[in-house]
């Protein structure tokens, strides 16, 4: 199983931001996306996650395989750490809440309301959600924001474990995660130019 992106052109608010992207990620591989702020990394990840349509090119192997984690963690402040994870586990039809809590060192916080956690703890909970999705492709947008050094290491271990079991990861990040054989893909050279064909004209209004 491979995630293949062919000649992809993506747009934000009707304006093309990246054009002619092609790459492939196969089992056990991680791809690190790099590029300056505003280059279109988030738009690319949202497109691959299926939240928006590309205006050109094709994505294959992504359908119903993706666990997406964005800047917002999707946590409910009035539910406890465990309840938040149990909800997502049930939505994805999986178990393994205990293992996820343990992996991200949240055991002592299990019964705390998510609203009372610190920013870094919330992020760890948001990342622990990935483990209860059971999905093979992790699409992560700046996963290490507000994590301390120890938590970044926990996260890198979780990614390594995921890759070792045949998973894949697509990560937009600015820091070095210490993943040994991750490929790095710089989106900079693919910036759309003025002659990139635009999408349908109604896109700008939607």
């Amino acid at each position: 199983m491979t995630l293949t992106v062919t000649d992809l052109t993506i747009a934000r608010g009707g304006l093309p931001v990246l054009a002619g992207l092609s790459f492939a990620v196969s089992k056990g591989q991680a791809l690190i996306l790099r590029g300056p702020n505003g280059a279109g990394k988030t738009t690319l990840l949202r497109t691959i996650a299926g939240l928006q349509e590309p205006i050109g090119g094709a994505i294959s192997g992504a359908e119903d395989q993706i666990a997406y984690a964005a800047h917002a963690d999707g946590l409910k402040a009035m539910l406890s750490v465990r309840e938040n994870l149990e909800f997502w586990a049930e939505v994805f039809g999986q178990d393994g809440v205990d293992a996820a809590i343990k992996t991200f060192n949240l055991t002592e916080l299990g019964d705390r309301l998510a609203g009372t956690l610190s920013a870094g703890q919330k992020r760890r909970l948001g990342l622990a959600r990935l483990l209860v999705t059971g999905r093979p492709i992790w699409v992560l947008d700046e996963p290490t924001v507000s994590l301390d050094v120890a938590s970044v290491a926990l996260f890198a271990d979780a990614v390594r474990g995921h890759l070792a079991t045949g998973g894949m990861a697509l990560i937009a990040t600015h820091i070095d995660l210490g993943l040994e054989d991750a490929q790095v893909f710089d989106v900079g050279p693919f910036a759309a130019t003025m002659d990139t064909p635009r999408g349908a004209s109604d896109e700008a209004f939607l």
């Binding site: 299926g50 666990a67 964005a70 999707g74 409910k76 939505v91 994805f92 039809g93």
Partner: peptide
């Protein structure tokens, strides 16, 4: 929408 769970629900099997 604000806490991001709508995005996550949209990518869930439901």
């Amino acid at each position: 929408f604000e806490d991001g769970s709508l995005d996550l629900l949209a990518t869930a099997p439901l």
